[in-house]
């Protein structure tokens, strides 16, 4: 059993983030989580910050409070994300702003603030979240895929910037997992998407946890700037 890690996971009120937080707590880790909604987890080793990940002041305050409380942050998992399925010509400008605010700006802000603590520690692991929608260039998901393409590019450059400080930065790209994020996608669209995977099934939370744990593993200290897609999708 791994114990003693301090892990900050964003978007922990439901879906993958909640599953990841429960997994880490079961491993004996201390978990800091956040979401716009109140906490849905109750555990002595869990602390929750109610915030919007694109709110700079709120992110700065939460991360520094976590560092003061626990003395360090060993890993950051940038899970928080929103999706919007629509043809580009039918997408309101405000949707583009919201998707980039949460998916990219939120990832950037948490990386920046947590990395400041990790640079001082001279160690750390950052795992960002992308999607198979980006390499598959899925029609109807242009904004979502573009925001995650930004996350991938940011991940790879950040890996180079933080490598000398003993910090790895990687990304996991899940296939659709039956969570709230994909519940409004029509079944025919989902079937067509699954057909483009080498292994044609929905992903599970366990599939995602497996890749996250791989990146967090002490043995993965030489692995950085990488994007791993699930389901046999290639970048």
């Amino acid at each position: 059993m791994k114990t003693g890690r301090v892990i900050f996971i964003t978007g922990t009120s439901r879906g993958l983030g909640l599953g990841l937080a429960e997994h880490c707590l079961a491993q004996g880790d201390t978990v800091c989580g956040c979401s716009r909604a109140p906490a849905t987890l109750t555990d002595a080793r869990y602390s929750h910050y109610e915030l919007d990940v694109s709110d700079e002041k709120a992110v700065v305050a939460a991360v520094r409070a976590a560092v003061r409380r626990h003395g360090r942050i060993d890993a950051l998992v940038n899970n928080a994300g929103i999706a919007s399925m629509n043809h580009a010509l039918l997408s309101p400008a405000v949707t583009a702003q919201q998707i980039f605010a949460t998916n990219f700006h939120g990832t950037f802000l948490f990386c920046r603030e947590v990395a400041k603590a990790m640079v001082r520690q001279k160690s750390g692991r950052i795992v960002n979240f992308t999607t198979v929608a980006t390499p598959l260039r899925l029609e109807g998901e242009s904004l979502y895929a573009a925001s995650k393409a930004a996350v991938e590019s940011f991940t790879q450059v950040l890996a180079r910037e933080l490598g000398p400080s003993g910090i790895t930065v990687n990304a996991v790209g899940p296939t659709p997992v039956p969570t709230d994020l994909v519940k409004n996608v029509p079944a025919a669209k989902m079937d067509a998407l699954l057909a483009r995977q080498a292994i044609r099934r929905f992903g599970t939370i366990e599939d995602v946890i497996n890749v996250v744990e791989f990146f967090l593993s002490p043995q993965s200290e030489f692995i950085t700037g990488q994007v791993i897609y699930l389901g046999g999708v290639n970048g």
Partner: peptide
């Protein structure tokens, strides 16, 4: 500079 500014903020 990155290390110094991170320390300074804290």
């Amino acid at each position: 500079l990155v290390n110094f500014l991170a320390d300074l903020e804290y």
